[in-house]
Simulated assay, not measured.
Amino acid sequence: MGISRLKAIILFILYGFSLVSCQNKKMEEKYSWSGTISAPQEYPMEIYSGGIIANGFTYGFDAIWGTQNTGWGNEGGTMSVETQQMEIPHRLEFTWYSLVERKFFTGKWDLDQENISRLFKEGFIDQDTKKKTTYSNFVVGLAPKGRVVLWINGPGNQKEVGVFQAHDTIITQEKAYENAKYMLKEGFADRMLNDPSYETFKPELKARIEKEGYPSPEIYDAFREKYNWKPVVLLPEGGEWIDFGFNNYNGEQENLFGESLKENTYKKRAVPKFCGFYWQDKDKNRYAVWIDSFNEKEIFDLFQKSGKEKNIDLTIKINSDNSAATISLKSENEELPVTKAKIRLSRKIE
């Protein structure tokens, strides 16, 4: 064997070791993260068991989490864990009881580790600290008919990283573990849904359900439809736009400020559910504007009418003393007024 060929083989072997080392290092990257539950307000879910699973660590869920219905995309509680740094999880397992549907659902799913790892690495700038940070929480969304969505979140930011389908299952009193047997008691779901002493529903939500019925389970698919839009704020002469935070119906959340506000561009986003921002006038007086909620039917109809093929400006125009705002969707050759949103405007912020 010639010397040059021997060198080539040695280099190949060294490269192989280097590649394996890099891959192992990549998989061993660790972050501090925890987990929580999200379920629609109208569809409370009772947690039976589950886990967000990484190499050497499982963030577990069981009946101690109880009934969850904080609102779609909204965090429930969290529980502290002893391990401070964990690898990116590779699997999600979950079993729960849907009180309205009177069914147990269960499933096991592989996670897109590569995408989640990329997002953790990219991170984002925290508006409060002005420093780069990253995501710190996984949110497991449980919706009717066994729909499951997984989000990751951090200050002012939440992104969808997985959508899954569970299947219904049967769990009996005999099969259930001790702390979960209460779910199988006769009349449990009826008590949780109808007995005011349990406070599962706020009075106004209960009244709406009694009047209109439960939302169609299919809306949690419709919530994920995306349009190419960006926010646009029109201010009085000399006014300066400071930031823009918003939550979308699909549970995602963004916070634009500084460079991200300057670079504000059209992106595929779900329909907005809430938004708010600060601005200052030419004399440096500061004001706030909050669109606490859009009318769901109106805003979806307007986005659908604008179309997925067009660039859409969610336009908010403010008058000189921050006492009135008008909202519209602007696309090429068309402007559609938004008339049913609930808007709050601040006085001058001292």
Rank of each mutant, 00 (worst) to 15 (best):
T133V: 15
G258M: 01
I9C: 02
T78Y: 03
E101K: 04
H90A: 09
G162Q: 00
I152S: 05
N264V: 08
K30T: 15
Q23A: 13
G162M: 01
Y31G: 12
V338F: 08
K273W: 09
S34H: 06
G258S: 01
T106Q: 00
F294G: 05
E122A: 13
Y182A: 11
S32T: 10
N24Q: 10
W241V: 12
F124D: 04
A180E: 00
I64C: 03
D168K: 10
D190W: 06
Q304V: 15
S328A: 13
G35P: 05
Y249I: 13
Y43T: 09
F94S: 02
K131Q: 14
S216M: 06
A39H: 02
K267V: 14
D128Q: 05
I291W: 02
S320L: 14
S216Y: 04
L205V: 10
K159Y: 10
I312N: 00
I219N: 01
P231S: 11
T265G: 01
F188N: 00
W241N: 07
P44M: 05
V161I: 12
I343D: 10
S98T: 00
E252A: 04
Q41V: 12
N157I: 14
K26Q: 04
F120Y: 11
Y182K: 09
T95H: 00
R91T: 13
I242Y: 03
K26P: 00
P231Q: 08
G60W: 02
F188H: 05
E259L: 14
P144E: 03
K175C: 02
W96I: 11
T95D: 00
Q304S: 15
E87L: 13
T315N: 07
E298T: 10
G123S: 04
R347A: 13
Y43S: 10
T133A: 13
E28M: 13
Q127I: 15
Y15W: 12
